[in-house]
Nucleic acid binder design. Structure first.
Length: 218
DNA sequence: AGGACGATTAACT
DNA sequence: GTTAATCGTCCTC
């Protein structure tokens, strides 16, 4: 049907805005995963904007690489990356092609498939901790290398983004991003107030190491 | 070719 | 509060 194509186009257009614009709009939206033979859905409560080539904290800042290639394409695709030798995190690619803007999904509430999530995240003590943190959220939805580049707008896709509004709801909070060591002055972390799934802010992130670059003088 | 460093988490004291 | 785990990526030599 032509209608299905039109709907995908509309959804993708909706995501083709800057990360700072899209990030607060994604709060309350639902990400559905049917990876691994199970259906799990998370309602997003915390996200961060990364403005690609304009943002020193973005993986896309220094231009495309094999890892970040998907970020430089059109909006509405999933960017998954591996970090700290053990975790996966997931982003919604947004903005215009070539700029590599993306929104990191940091936390959410599991609204479907909690039984499956309990198996995927056996160390969680409470349900609010299931998707509290970006690597935990990715783990809940089984997002890893195989999910990188999947289309979030197509009804046929195993991972879909649903209920994204045109405007951010009132009351959205913002503050510095977590875990970065550059561009820390930008308040590009967004979250919903009074949500127990939102992670506590760890000030400053990783400690700044003194300049390791050292040239010996004769 | 070598090494520093993570958009983190869990398990410690 | 601190720190180990653990490896792909990217920068430097």
């Amino acid at each position: 049907m032509g209608g299905a194509f039109d709907r995908v186009t509309v959804e993708r257009e909706r995501l083709a805005v800057t990360a700072v614009k899209l990030a607060p709009r994604l709060l309350g939206a639902v990400l559905v995963s049917e990876i691994g033979g199970a259906r799990v859905a998370v309602r997003l409560t915390e996200v961060e904007a990364y403005e690609g080539t304009a943002d020193p904290a973005s993986h896309g800042f220094r231009g495309p690489t094999p890892r970040t290639e998907i970020m430089f394409g059109p909006a509405g695709f999933l960017y998954c990356y591996f970090t700290y030798g053990m975790h996966w995190c997931a982003n919604v690619v947004c903005g215009v092609e070539g700029r590599s803007s993306a929104v990191l999904m940091r936390a959410g509430e599991i609204v479907e498939g909690a039984d499956v999530v309990a198996v995927r995240r056996p160390t969680a003590k409470r349900a609010v901790d299931y998707a509290r943190g970006p690597a935990r959220l990715a783990s809940c939805l089984a997002l890893d290398a195989a999910a990188n580049g999947l289309d979030l707008c197509s009804a046929d896709s195993p991972v879909r983004l649903e209920y994204v509004p045109s405007r951010a709801r009132p009351g959205v909070r913002s503050g510095p991003r977590v875990g970065i060591s550059v561009a820390t002055e930008q308040p590009w972390r967004f979250w919903l107030p009074d949500e127990p799934t939102v992670s506590v802010f760890k000030a400053g992130g990783r400690k700044r190491v003194p300049p390791a670059r050292h040239t010996e003088q004769p």
